[in-house]
Structures are given as C-alpha cells and as structure tokens.
Computed example of a mutant assay.
Amino acid sequence: MSDFELAWDSRCGVAESPVWDAATRRLLFCDINGKRINALSVDTGARESWDFPEVVGSFGLCHSGRLVVAQRHHVVLFDPRSGALTDLTPKIQEPPTNRLNDGKVGPDGAFWVGGMDENSPRQKIAGLYRVTADGRITKQEDGYAVSNGLAWSPDGRVMYHSDSTAGVIEAWDFDPATGGRTHRRVLATLTNEDGRPDGAATDAAGNYWSAGPSAGCLNCFSPTGALLRKWAFPVPGPTMPCFADGALYVTSLREGKSADVLAAFPTLGGLFRADAPAVGAPVGLFAD
C-alpha cells in the first residue's frame, strides 16, 4: 500500500462522514461545525460545497439522488441539484447539551444516527436512532457518550457501532429486511494509546476499519475482533475511513489542536487518500 497523499487541503475544523457516491463518481465529506458538505470528483478533481443552517453531524446517499443529513437535533433531506432543503423529522429528544453525530444508511434503507454529549467530561446520555423515509424516529439504544463507528458487514448481516469515549466497539447480528438486531457482543475495547474508535468502514472481506484519532492510526479488526493491522496515519487525528474506487479516503481533525501541532501539521482537517488495501463493502441508499 502506498503512503497517504493530501486529496483536498480543506482545513475543516472536524472533517467527517466521507461517503462514496458511485453514481456521480464523487467523494463527499462534511465539516461538522463548519456546517458544510464538500464533494470531490475523483476523475476531474472538481470541487463543490454546500452550506447548511446547522452543524452537519453526518449524512448519507438517497435513492432519489438527495442526501439525508443529520443536523444538530433533527434530520433533513437535501437536493444537491436544486439546493432544496426539506425537514424529514421533528426534533429528536436528546438532552439539550447533545447533538447528532455519526450516521450512516444501513442495508435496511434506514438512516441510523447517534448522539453525543458536548459537555466535558462527557456523560453517557446519548442514544442511537433509526430514521425511516416517513420521518419516523425510533430509539434503538441508549447510554452512550459519543455514538460513532457505524458500519455493516458486506452481506448486511452484522452491524457495528462504537462509543468513542468508552473505547468500545460493539456488534449485533442484523436483519437487512427489518433493521432488527440480536446477539450484541463487544468486538474490542481500546485505550487512547490503542486509538479510541471514531468513524469506521467495512471491507468486502468483512473486516472493520476504525479511525483511532487518539493514536493517529487506523485499526483493522477481523469480524471476530482480532486486530489485523494498525496503520499509522500521516497527521494526528484521522476521523473516518471510506473505500472508494480503488482508494481509501480518510478525513481528519483540526479543531482543538495546539498551535505547535498545527505548525507541524498544517494540513490537519484535510481529506487524505491512499491506495485501497481492500474493496469496500456496499454503500447503503436511503429508501426515500
């Protein structure tokens, strides 16, 4: 595998949620507190950005060509072609100190999204939700500090999730027809030195790739939780990997870094790319 190169010197505060859109051959990612989604054409290098009224915790692709987007406390639909923004859900009943964070479209066609506590120290007061195209919100789990790391096995039969603060990666057996889950188990428990789990992606072999910003690395786990590889990242704070067209893209974190760190790593908050170590699992589409 080649070293990472800088694909976009975006200098986001918190670049997150990279998503591969095969239909348009673009890699999309958000700047959470910058309230923006960026799109990079992998063929031409053309760039486009869209601004939102609130923080963009995460987003996913829709069958219609729209995006399903997590704002601070609710979920919207956005049409990149027209710029139309439509509320999908009412306010999700999270504590006022929380906001929506990591989210992905599952094999069931629903948007799964979790909350996070913005207090310091963070408390375990956030939930994990399933959002359907009719705007229905169903709380699935509770008791997280930072819900993160959503991903599914390539056959859609296993769902992965993490709590970044607790350092725990968990998995369930998953029914792609109904979104039902059974048999929760802990895949791994990680410390700061290991690389506490942030955003994640799965490959076609079923391995789970987790960004470890506290250790500046990507951790690759087998479906049974064996650590297969620890891949050093060129800058501190990788936030989420994404497989796309023979490449692995990874977003990164700039916010909260010291002046010394920013001087040493001026491209923090950028989008990075390397030759893919594997083929990615299928990208889910929201059933709108």
Rank of each mutant, 00 (worst) to 15 (best):
residue 138 T to R: 14
residue 258 S to D: 08
residue 219 N to S: 14
residue 252 S to V: 02
residue 199 G to M: 04
residue 221 F to C: 02
residue 146 V to L: 14
residue 174 F to K: 10
residue 188 A to V: 06
residue 142 D to N: 09
residue 213 P to Y: 01
residue 215 A to N: 10
residue 173 D to W: 02
residue 141 E to M: 14
residue 247 A to G: 12
residue 201 A to P: 13
residue 247 A to Q: 10
residue 243 F to W: 08
residue 165 T to G: 11
residue 258 S to R: 02
residue 230 K to S: 14
residue 219 N to I: 11
residue 253 L to E: 05
residue 193 E to T: 12
residue 177 A to Y: 02
residue 244 A to R: 08
residue 145 A to C: 08
residue 253 L to P: 01
residue 253 L to W: 08
residue 182 T to E: 11
residue 174 F to C: 11
residue 156 G to E: 10
residue 157 R to L: 13
residue 142 D to P: 03
residue 201 A to K: 11
residue 193 E to D: 15
residue 203 D to E: 13
residue 239 T to R: 00
residue 212 G to K: 03
residue 259 A to F: 03
residue 202 T to D: 01
residue 183 H to L: 08
residue 206 G to I: 08
residue 127 G to R: 03
residue 167 G to V: 06
residue 174 F to G: 12
residue 210 S to Y: 06
residue 262 L to D: 09
residue 244 A to T: 07
residue 197 P to A: 10
residue 200 A to N: 03
residue 173 D to H: 00
residue 192 N to E: 15
residue 229 R to D: 11
residue 198 D to I: 13
residue 136 R to E: 13
residue 232 A to R: 13
residue 194 D to N: 14
residue 153 S to F: 03
residue 149 G to A: 14
residue 248 L to Y: 00
residue 257 K to C: 09
residue 150 L to E: 02
residue 256 G to C: 01
residue 180 G to V: 02
residue 202 T to E: 01
residue 165 T to L: 15
residue 197 P to F: 05
residue 146 V to K: 10
residue 157 R to S: 13
residue 180 G to W: 01
residue 161 H to F: 15
residue 259 A to V: 09
residue 176 P to Y: 04
residue 125 I to K: 08
residue 205 A to Q: 15
residue 261 V to K: 06
residue 231 W to D: 15
residue 257 K to I: 02
residue 175 D to W: 05
residue 219 N to F: 01
residue 169 I to V: 15
residue 164 S to D: 13
residue 209 W to P: 09
residue 200 A to M: 03
residue 231 W to S: 13
residue 150 L to W: 02
residue 174 F to D: 10
residue 190 L to A: 12
residue 144 Y to D: 13
residue 244 A to H: 10
residue 128 L to E: 11
residue 218 L to R: 02
residue 156 G to V: 04
residue 213 P to C: 00
residue 128 L to F: 15
residue 256 G to I: 00
residue 192 N to F: 12
residue 155 D to N: 09
residue 257 K to S: 10
residue 155 D to C: 04
residue 130 R to G: 02
residue 132 T to I: 11
residue 234 P to T: 04
residue 203 D to F: 13
residue 152 W to C: 05
residue 244 A to G: 12
residue 170 E to S: 15
residue 137 I to W: 10
residue 164 S to G: 12
residue 251 T to S: 00
residue 241 P to F: 01
residue 245 D to H: 13
residue 208 Y to L: 14
residue 261 V to F: 06
residue 239 T to K: 00
residue 235 V to H: 07
residue 235 V to W: 07
residue 185 R to P: 06
residue 193 E to S: 14
residue 240 M to I: 01
residue 140 Q to F: 05
residue 222 S to Q: 09
residue 242 C to S: 10
residue 148 N to S: 07
residue 129 Y to C: 06
residue 190 L to K: 09
residue 240 M to F: 01
residue 157 R to M: 13
residue 241 P to R: 00
residue 217 C to R: 10
residue 218 L to D: 01
residue 145 A to K: 02
residue 246 G to R: 07
residue 225 G to W: 03
residue 219 N to H: 07
residue 178 T to E: 04
residue 252 S to N: 04
residue 143 G to R: 10
residue 168 V to R: 12
residue 260 D to R: 05
residue 220 C to D: 05
residue 194 D to Y: 09
